[in-house]
Each structure stands twice: as C-alpha cells, then as structure tokens.
Amino acid sequence: MFYNLLYPLADVFSPFNLFRYLTFRSIAAFLTALVLSFLIGGSLIRWLRSKQAQGQPIRTDGPATHLSKKGTPTMGGLLILITLTVATLLWADLTNRYVWIVLAITLAFGAVGFWDDYLKVTKKNPKGVPGKIKLVISILVAGIAAYLIAQASPSSLRYMMALPFLKDVLLPLGLIGFLAFSVVVMVGASNAVNLTDGLDGLAIGPVIMASAVFGLIAYVVGNTILTNYLYLHHVPRSGELAVLLAAMIGAGLGFLWFNAPPAMVFMGDTGSLAIGGALGAVAVVTKHEIVLAIVGGLFVLETVSVIVQVLSFKWTGRRVFRMAPLHHHFEQKGWAEPTIVFRFWIIAAILAMAGLATLKLR
C-alpha cells in the first residue's frame, strides 16, 4: 500500500523514492510483522486461552511428556497470519498478481486449518476435520492457484518445470501436468510442515530458514541482471514475493517468541498448513519446486517417516520407527524435546544452505 500511495509522489518528496527498493520494503515488512507480533501476541494468546477451556487435545497414545502440555491453547497460527497479512498489505506492491495469489493461498489454507483446529477444540477430538475433506479442499485451492500462477507467468515459462544444476533446461508439462505437479508441491509442502509441527518451536525454525532462502531466490529470479549472471530463468515481477517472505520471517520470529519451550501457544493447523502452502506457492512461481524439496528437506524426512511407518505396518505388521513422525521416534528413545528441536534446526540450516547453493551450481 505504501508503495502504491507514496512512491508516485517521489518527485514531490524525494525520500519517498525509498519505496521503490525491494530491499527497503522487505526489511520494513519484516520489522512490521515482528513488532506487531510482540504488540498483539500476548492479548491474542489470552483471548485464545479464554475460548479454549482445555486447550488443544493431547493424544493419549503419544509421548507421555506431552501430557504436561495439557491446557495450552492452539490456533496460534492466527498470530502469523494476521501479522503476515498486515505487513504484506502495507509494504508490497498491491498491483502484483503473484503477491495476491500467494497471500490468497496462504489465507485459504489457514482457513482450512482454522476449521480443523476449531473442531478439535470444540469437539475435544484430536482428529478434527476428516482427512479426505481437508485433502479435497486443499487440492481445489492449490489447483486454482496453480492455474492463476501459470496465467501470470511469461509464456516461455508457462506449464514448464525447471531443473536445478542445469541451465537453460525446461521440461514442458502441459496444462494438466503443470496443474498436477503444482498441486503436489503446494499440498505436499502444506502437509509436510503440518506433520513437522509436533514439538515446541520445531516447525517454525525451519520455516523461517526456508522463507529466508526463498526470499532471496524470489529477489534473484525477479532481477534480470542476476538471472543472466546465474543462468536462471527470469520470472518478471516475482521479486515482489521477497516482501511477503520477509513478512513471514518477521511473523515467524514473533510467533517463536511465544512458542519457544515451554510453549505459551501452539501453532495448530491454522499456521502450519498456511505457511507450508505459502512456501509451496512461492516455489511454483519462481520455478524452484525441486529446490524446495532440498531447502525443506527436514519436512520431507518427517513426511517420509510417516509414509514408511504406515506402509511397513500395513504390509508386514511391523513398525520401522518407535513412533512417527520422526521427531516422536527420538522422543521415545529418550531424547529431550529441546535437544530434538535444536538438532533438527541444525539439519534444516544445512539443507537450507545446500538448497541455496543450487543458485550457483549450474
């Protein structure tokens, strides 16, 4: 909003020229989301606690240490969504279609998560919305977003998939193939973050790291000079997503302040589905879908652990892990929760740097 209102007045008041710079507006969006989180976080948590008598239902078949968390409110993802949305609307170029598409899918996935959390709290049932219903809604939302992204993309990149490590290589997928692939990326990323969100601070740390990497990727891919230098595919106007991702980093850090062990609030599906979907959508826009699997490798590991566990038990009657997702396996082995969180953060940081390296390794 500030860009659209104030930058045209730069000829009258030269300091308004600052609003043309993505770096300035990204930093401003980060600080806005962070400060706003601190300002409203405490009040929002108290309101959630007043509406949730017993907090998020705790699985009786889960690790025994989780029983001590009974009464902790959920839907803390609202804090992320509110601050992310406000900061983005204030500092992004509101004529940019990519910003609206990614913000819309973030809020749509967040709404599905909110519905799920609401049922869990009101029905005192850890299952919430049936999985098939959530999946169908998520696929529809992602499919619409994928189509809009394709129409906003330059014709040379439309319905194409780029491969990391290879320059000037594009795989034509066609309309149906592109939509299917994009849906898998967005819905997969959304659910992968959701599966990872099982310990205090576990999911939001890697999300912040992935947001930082993809903020840089969006900035680079949207810049003609940098894409020519790095042999990347140029996606005009995609750089504006750096503002949204900077806001997500600020919102994530603000949420982490309240979610650090012992958590005052849980993210819930409200937050995890939303921010995972946002990362998936940005990956589709920037043509770095496969890189997302590297940067978000921790989310992939958590998801694979669940798939392996389910298939192994179904086919052989045996469990590969003591409990899935993977972080619960280490809990059952006796690792302290902060130990798991910090070690998983270290793994996420390594994978984020590996994903970032793909920009240069061509």
Rank of each mutant, 00 (worst) to 15 (best):
A152I: 03
A152P: 08
A152K: 02
A152T: 10
S153G: 09
S153R: 08
S153D: 09
S153I: 06
S153P: 01
S153E: 13
P154W: 04
P154V: 04
P154H: 10
P154M: 03
P154S: 08
P154E: 04
S155K: 14
S155V: 14
S155H: 09
S155E: 15
S156P: 04
S156C: 14
L157I: 05
L157W: 09
R158F: 05
R158S: 05
R158I: 07
Y159N: 06
Y159R: 11
Y159S: 13
M160V: 09
M160K: 02
M160L: 07
M160E: 02
M160I: 06
M161T: 15
M161L: 15
M161R: 14
M161E: 15
M161Q: 15
M161D: 08
A162R: 01
A162H: 07
A162D: 03
A162N: 09
L163H: 00
L163P: 04
L163R: 03
P164D: 06
P164M: 06
F165C: 07
F165L: 15
F165H: 14
F165T: 13
L166Y: 12
L166R: 15
L166K: 12
L166P: 00
K167A: 13
K167T: 15
K167D: 12
K167P: 06
D168K: 10
D168T: 12
D168I: 08
D168G: 14
V169N: 00
V169T: 10
V169W: 03
V169R: 00
L170D: 01
L170I: 02
L170E: 09
L170G: 02
L171W: 11
L171G: 02
L171I: 14
L171A: 12
P172G: 05
P172T: 06
P172C: 03
P172I: 04
P172A: 02
P172K: 12
P172H: 05
L173E: 08
L173S: 04
L173P: 03
L173C: 05
G174W: 03
G174E: 10
G174T: 05
G174D: 06
G174Y: 11
G174F: 11
G174N: 09
G174Q: 11
L175D: 13
L175N: 14
L175C: 15
L175Q: 14
L175M: 15
I176R: 10
G177W: 07
G177R: 02
G177I: 04
F178S: 05
F178L: 10
F178E: 02
F178G: 04
F178V: 05
L179A: 14
L179H: 02
L179D: 01
A180F: 14
A180G: 10
A180C: 13
A180H: 07
A180D: 11
F181N: 00
F181W: 13
S182E: 07
S182R: 00
S182A: 09
V183W: 02
V183C: 11
V183F: 03
V184L: 13
V184G: 08
V184W: 09
V185H: 00
V185E: 01
V185L: 04
V185W: 01
M186W: 11
M186N: 08
M186T: 03
V187C: 09
V187M: 06
V187I: 08
V187S: 05
V187H: 01
V187L: 12
V187T: 10
G188Q: 00
G188D: 03
G188I: 05
A189K: 00
A189C: 09
A189G: 04
A189I: 09
